[in-house]
Write a protein that binds this DNA or RNA. Structure first.
Lengths: 365, 365
DNA sequence: ATGAAAGCGCTAACAA
DNA sequence: TTGTTAGCGCTTTCAT
C-alpha cells in the first residue's frame, strides 16, 4: 500500500497471514462455494476493517467481464422537469435501484451524440452512434424508455446485450418489457367523475402514434362505456406533441365549442400544465367550473389546485427494470420465464381538482 | 477475439502487423510523445475500424488508476421534480458535461445510505458511510451541491480527492467552489417591479441558515435600497424549510396583514408553487392583484401565469464543475489559480406575472 | 519509431 | 479448506 492509494487484497492477505486468493474469496465468494472457514473469514475481515480495505471495483469488473454499468436511454431529450417530468423521476428511481444492486446508470441521449465529440473520426451520427457508444462503454445492459424507433433497440438487442424497455416499448422488438396498465387508474378516475355527476368528459392526449397513447385513450373510452357513456368524438382532443403548448391549444379549442365538457382528463402531467393555463386564461375556475384529472402524478400534487391524478408506479418500474437486467445477466433456470413482460397497475389519487358539475351549463366562450 | 466479446488491442495488433503497445499508443498516446509514424497510425486505425475496436474503458481505468467516475452529492434527498427542481436539472447538466469529457456521474445521497444495504457488517450510518462509499467506488472527484454540514465535505476533501462545491458551498472547507451571484438577477427583478410602480414588495424565502439564503435576502434588501426603498420588516417572510407548504403558510400570513404587499418575490421555484396556491385560494389574481417573481427559473415558465424569474446558469455550473474536477486531476501549472472560486451571474427573465399595482390598495383578507 | 515486458487489483480454475 | 497460477485489456518504462 503506497502513499495515498487504497490498500489492496495483497495488503490484507499479508497482514492476515493468508493468500490473496483467500481474501478475494472472503469478499466476493458466491454462497454456493463457501470455501473459507469461519476463523479465517473473521480474521480477514478484521484486518480488512483495520486497513480500511474494500475490493477495487474496476479490477473486479475487468476480471469478471462485467462493467457494472447499465445504459439508460430516456424517451426524449430531457430538457426541463416540467417538460418531461416522468423521465426525470424515472431516472432517479433507476439510479437508486441500480446503486442498491451495485450497478451504475449512465444516461445516453440518442440524438445528443456524445460519442462524436470524443472520437473525431466518427462522423456518422444518430442511430449508429448510440449503439457504438453503448458498446464502447461496455454496458452490461440497456434500459430504453420510449425509443422513437425500433431501430436502436433492435441493434442493441441483436448485439446480445440484455435489454429491457419500460413504459413505452417498441413491441416489434422482442425484448423484455415493463409496462404500466393505465386501465385501473383511468377506470377509477372516470368512475370518480361520473359519480360526481359528470357526463361530458373530454380527453386531452396524444393519438395513435404510440401504443401507449392509444392504450390510454382506449382505456378512457372503455371506462366511459362502463358507465354507458359514449365519448363525444369532438371532445377527444388529440394533441400532436406531448407538450404543454399543444395541450393549451387543445383546451382552448375545447372551450370555444358550443357545449363545453364539465371535466377534462389530461393524459400527462406536462399536458395538464397547458390545460390549466388555458382554463385560467379563460377564467374557468377549477374545480368549480371545470373538473380536471391528470395522468402521471408527478407534478399534479403541487399544482393549484392539487390535481387528481392517475399515478404510475415509477419507483417499482425502476426497481424491476434493474432487477430484470440483473436477472438477464445471471439467469436462474427457475425465473427465466414469467418476468419478461411485466405489467404494473396504476391507481387513482383524488384531489381537490374535482367536484360536481355546475348546474348552469351555458357556454361562456 | 472470442465469440460475443469485443475485439482487443491484441486483435488489432495482429491484423495490422504491429505490436499491441503500438495500438495502445495510437489510441491513447498523449500529444507530447507522438511516437507513431503516420503510416502506422493510419494502418492501425483502418484495422481498428474494420474490426469495430475501441479501447476497453475498464482496462484503461485500472491501469491508469482513474475510474472516470465523479460522485455527485445533491443538496437534499431528491424526491420529486417539483420539490427539488434545481438538483434534478443540475444532475442532468452534470451528467451531460461529464459524458462529454468521458466521465460518468454517480449520484449519492448522504442519508440514503446505499452502502449499508450491501455490506451488512457496516452498521454506523450517515457521514461515515458517504465517504466510505465514495472511496470504495474509487471516484476521481466529488461534486457537492449544498451539503447540510461541512463534515462530509471535510472528510472527502481530506482524503485527497478533488472536490468542488456548487451553488451552496460550506465555506469552512477550502474546496474549489462554483457559486452563483444572485445580485444581478435580483437587482433587475426589483428594478422591474419598481419601474412598474411597486413599492411594497414581500420576500418569501429562507433565513440565515445558509449563506446562500442570506445572500438572496441581502441582495433583495440591497436592491430595494437602490431605489430608496426600505424593506417592510414584516413583509420579509422567512420560511423554515424550502418547501411549497412553508411558502404557502408564509403567503397566507402575508395576505392577512392589514396592508398587503403588491408584489411577492419567492426565493425559489418550489416556493413559488406554495405562493401561487395561497394566492389562488384567496382569489388574489396574478398579476392583476399581485405581481409575482421567482428565483431559479426551472418551473417558472410553465406555471400559470408564466412567472417572471431570476435564472441561474445551471448548465454552465455543471459544465464548469466537471471541468474543474478534470483540471484538478490533471493540473496544468498555468491554470492552477483563478478558477478555484468561480462566481457566475444570474439574469432576470420578465414574464406575464407582473404588472403595475392596482390603484385600489384596500385589504381584502 | 517500435517491440518486449511488467504490472494495475482482482477472480477462477486447478492443485494440494 | 487454502494456495498457486494464469490471465482480464490496457499503459508505460526500457530496450532496440
Amino acid at each position: 500500500m503506497k502513499k495515498g492509494s487504497s490498500p489492496t487484497s495483497v495488503d490484507v492477505a499479508k497482514q492476515a497471514g493468508v493468500s490473496q486468493a483467500t481474501v478475494s474469496m472472503v469478499f466476493s465468494g458466491r454462497q454456493e462455494r463457501v470455501r473459507v472457514s469461519d476463523a479465517t473469514r473473521t480474521r480477514v475481515l478484521a484486518v480488512a476493517a483495520a486497513l480500511g480495505y474494500s475490493p477495487h471495483p474496476l479490477a473486479q469488473a475487468l476480471r469478471r467481464q462485467r462493467s457494472g454499468i447499465i445504459g439508460f436511454v430516456p424517451r426524449d431529450q430531457r430538457t426541463t422537469p416540467t417538460m418531461q417530468p416522468v423521465p426525470f423521476l424515472l431516472g432517479l428511481h433507476l439510479a437508486r435501484a441500480a446503486m442498491q444492486r451495485g450497478y451504475h446508470i449512465i444516461e445516453v441521449g440518442a440524438e445528443e451524440n456524445p460519442f462524436v465529440s470524443q472520437v473525431s473520426q466518427v462522423s456518422q451520427v444518430s442511430q449508429e452512434t448510440l449503439v457504438s457508444f453503448l458498446q464502447s462503454r461496455r454496458v452490461d445492459g440497456v434500459i430504453f424508455d420510449g425509443p422513437e424507433t425500433a431501430h436502436d433497440v433492435e441493434r442493441v438487442f441483436a448485439s446480445g446485450v440484455p435489454v429491457v424497455q419500460v413504459i413505452r416499448p417498441q413491441l416489434t422488438v422482442s425484448t423484455a418489457t415493463i409496462t404500466v396498465d393505465p386501465a385501473p387508474g383511468i377506470n377509477a378516475a372516470v368512475a370518480h367523475l361520473v359519480a360526481l355527476g359528470h357526463r361530458a368528459i373530454a380527453f386531452v392526449g396524444r393519438g395513435g402514434s404510440y401504443p401507449v397513447d392509444t392504450l390510454r385513450l382506449d382505456s378512457f373510452v372503455a371506462a366511459l362505456a362502463r358507465h354507458a357513456l359514449a365519448p363525444d368524438r369532438d371532445a377527444l382532443h388529440l394533441v400532436a406533441h406531448y407538450t404543454p403548448d399543444d395541450a393549451y391549444a387543445a383546451t382552448r379549442a375545447l372551450l370555444s365549442r358550443p357545449v363545453r365538457p364539465t371535466a377534462i382528463f389530461a393524459a400527462g402531467d406536462n399536458l395538464v400544465l397547458g390545460v390549466l393555463r388555458a382554463l385560467h386564461e379563460a377564467r374557468v375556475r377549477v374545480p368549480e367550473a371545470m373538473s380536471v384529472v391528470s395522468y402521471d402524478d408527478v407534478l399534479a400534487a403541487d399544482l393549484y389546485p392539487p390535481i387528481a391524478s392517475v399515478a404510475q408506479p415509477l419507483a417499482e418500474v425502476g426497481e424491476r427494470a434493474v432487477a430484470l437486467i440483473a436477472a438477464l445477466l445471471d439467469p436462474t433456470p427457475s425465473e427465466e420465464e414469467g418476468l419478461r413482460h411485466l405489467v404494473l397497475a396504476t391507481r387513482f389519487i383524488a384531489r381537490a381538482s374535482t367536484q360536481p358539475p355546475q348546474s348552469s351549463d351555458g357556454a361562456g366562450g
